[in-house]
């Protein structure tokens, strides 16, 4: 390794420390996370520093603006426990008794008498106003409901995508994951899942994409998998749909946009899985 390359990796290790501390801007963090997933040295450094960062929080427990110990109010626990133990079933909020319920009776007031035609006119006016408001409100309600449903659907999709992404990264960082290094990245097998993590990957020429391939066990023909392009930092992280137990090799090649049914260029990487 040249001095320049060594220095380059020292920079990565410094970035890993900043990432472990949680002080990296969000967009850079993504790049470092992908690198950690693909680089054994940086993964070791991260595993070394992460517990020290975890311990940092313990020092805050003793922090006091004045001199007294930090204490949360007792109401806090009560509030939280109300969420956990809302109302016990069977616990009546109204006292129950076999005795007949006695209601206090207010002295009866003398009723106000309205002429019948005035009552009828008022009822008609109220009915008319109510019908018009109903029609308007109903329209607004339908529109709001549609917007809400759309928003909810988008939020769910985003939350699901984020959860998938986090789960994938946890998989790659898991102690039992098997890593198959290649130039600028690696293929990772974690449980029954397969991932490709690449960094410093050149952007494909215009009209082209990278395509992943998987070789099903017992087959001699590569099956087409996902197409992808690296981000602006040259990082690509791909979760393959094929299951690891059924796959004997993974490859990546450069293909025309839209992907190919069979590799049309020499694969950049071919990784046999044992």
């Amino acid at each position: 390794m040249s001095d320049l390359q060594a220095r380059g990796h020292e920079d990565w290790l410094d970035d890993v420390a900043v990432y472990a501390l949680g002080a990296m801007p969000m967009q850079d963090a993504q790049r470092v996370r992908a690198h950690i997933a693909a680089c054994e040295i940086c993964r070791r450094e991260y595993a070394l520093l992460q517990p020290a960062v975890g311990a940092l929080a313990e020092s805050a427990e003793a922090f006091t603006p004045g001199n007294g110990p930090i204490v949360a109010s007792p109401e806090l626990k009560a509030r939280i426990m109300r969420t956990v133990r809302p109302e016990r079933p069977g616990a009546a909020t109204v006292p129950q008794t076999d005795a007949p319920v006695r209601r206090s009776v207010a002295p009866r007031e003398r009723p106000i008498l309205w002429p019948v035609y005035l009552v009828a006119a008022a009822c008609l006016a109220i009915a008319l106003i109510s019908s018009i408001s109903d029609i308007m409100l109903s329209g607004q309600l339908k529109q709001s409901q549609a917007e809400l449903a759309q928003l909810r659907s988008r939020t769910n999709a985003l939350a699901s995508a984020l959860a998938d992404r986090q789960a994938a990264i946890s998989d790659v960082l898991a102690a039992g994951a098997k890593h198959y290094p290649v130039d600028n990245g690696e293929v990772v097998r974690s449980g029954s899942r397969l991932y490709i993590a690449m960094y410093d990957l050149a952007a494909p020429p215009r009209g082209h994409v990278y395509q992943a391939w998987t070789l099903p066990k017992g087959s001699k023909t590569m099956a087409p998998s996902l197409t992808f392009v690296p981000d602006a930092h040259g990082v690509a992280f791909v979760s393959l749909p094929a299951g690891a137990p059924e796959t004997s090799a993974v490859a990546v090649s450069l293909e025309p946009e839209g992907g190919s049914k069979q590799p049309t260029t020499k694969p950049l990487i071919v990784v046999p899985l044992d």
């Binding site: 963090a29 992460q50 959860a163 986090q166």
Partner: peptide, 13 residues
């Protein structure tokens, strides 16, 4: 703004 620390990743150590 700094990144959030991953919550689904366990601290093995």
């Amino acid at each position: 703004l700094p990144q959030a620390l991953p919550e689904s990743e366990s601290v093995e150590d």
